[in-house]
Design a protein around this nucleic acid. Structure first.
Lengths: 158, 158
DNA sequence: TCATCTATGTGCAAAATACACATATCAGCA
DNA sequence: TGCTGATATGTGTATTTTGCACATAGATGA
C-alpha cells in the first residue's frame, strides 16, 4: 500500500515545487557502498595496526568482503582524515617504484576510533534487535520487550 | 611527520589546480553523524519489528545513543527508501493530530537488511581486529597474525 | 487568540561521491 | 628503444547527499 502523494488527501501540493525528478540511488535497486564514516573508520582500523599507504588499503578493502567502493574516494578520504588530524602522512621514497604516501594513525585518530567503537556498539544493538525475539511469526503482546519504546504507539510489523 | 604537498619532492604541482580550500568536515575536529547507509539500515531495523512513522523513528534514534543526525534527513531518507522499494507507506489519519505517514518494511527491504547484516559482520571483524592482539605495545613479528595481509609490506604501527 | 507540541516537509548552499581521465615510476620483453 | 602492464596517487566535474533555516498544518490548552 503505497501513497506517493505529498498530501494526506488527494489535494494540490502546498507549493509549486512538487517532487522533481530526483533519481537518487537509482530509483530502484539499492546497492550499499562503502562510504562516509563507514569507510573512514575502516581505514582508521587498518591503520591502528599497520602504517600503510593508500594503494595497500585499497587492496585490503577489496579483499575484505565489504561493499563496493571507489578507489579515488579512498585517496580523497585519507587526505580528508589528514586534514582533520586523525592520520598523518609522509612521502616514502625508500623503495623502488612510484612514491608512496605512507599514513599512520595519530593520537587524535586513536581517540576517535575508540569513540566510534563505543558508538558502534549501540548501532549493533539496534541492528541485532531487529532479529531478537522475532523470526517467529505472530509476536504476542506478552513478549512485549518493546523496552524503551513507547508502549502502544508502535504497531507490530505485520 | 606530515607532508601536505601533493608531490613527493618539493617541486611544482602537476597542474594548475592545486589544493583549493575544501574545508569539508570542518578541517579540524571530526564528529560522526548518522547518515547514509548507517541511517538507512537503522531505520529498516526498527521497521522490521514495528510499523512506524517518521516522527516516531526520529524520537527513537534520539534516544538510541547513536551519533547526531538531522530529522529532515530522516524524512528524506524514508522517502528515498520508499523510492527504492525497501519500505512502503500510507497516510494514516485514523488518530487525531496531524496526518502521519506510516511506514512498513517490504519484502525487498527485508532482503536488503539480511544482506546488510551479513556484510556488516565483515565490517565488525575489521573494526574488532584493530584491537585484537594489540593494546600490548611492541608487537613482535612472532605473533604475525597478519593473516591475509601481504607479509612484510605493511609496517607495524609504531 | 496565542503558544506549544505533534508531524512532515521544501529551498538552497555546501559537502561528499562516482566516474572518466591524467600522471609518474618501474619491470619485463620484443 | 619502444611498448605494455602493474604500481601508486591523484584531478575535473557533474550528480547526489546533507545541514540548516524555514514553511505548513492539525490539535490542545491557557
Amino acid at each position: 500500500m503505497t501513497n506517493e502523494s505529498s498530501e494526506p488527501n488527494g489535494k494540490s501540493p502546498r507549493n509549486g515545487a512538487g517532487a522533481k525528478g530526483r533519481v537518487s540511488r537509482g530509483d530502484n535497486g539499492y546497492k550499499p557502498r562503502l562510504t562516509g564514516d563507514l569507510l573512514s573508520s575502516s581505514l582508521l582500523a587498518y591503520l591502528r595496526r599497520w602504517n600503510a599507504y593508500g594503494y595497500q588499503l585499497v587492496q585490503e578493502l577489496g579483499k575484505s568482503g565489504l561493499p563496493d567502493f571507489d578507489s579515488t574516494t579512498v585517496y580523497r578520504t585519507l587526505r580528508q582524515l589528514e586534514k582533520s588530524g586523525l592520520v598523518s602522512s609522509f612521502w616514502d621514497t625508500t623503495e623502488s617504484g612510484p612514491a608512496r604516501r605512507r599514513y599512520s594513525l595519530t593520537q587524535s585518530g586513536e581517540t576517535f576510533l575508540d569513540l566510534w567503537y563505543d558508538m558502534f556498539g549501540k548501532y549493533q544493538e539496534i541492528l541485532q534487535s531487529a532479529w531478537n525475539s522475532l523470526d517467529n511469526p505472530h509476536r504476542t503482546s506478552a513478549n512485549a520487550d518493546a523496552a524503551e519504546l513507547d508502549d502502544g504507539k508502535l504497531e507490530e510489523a505485520q
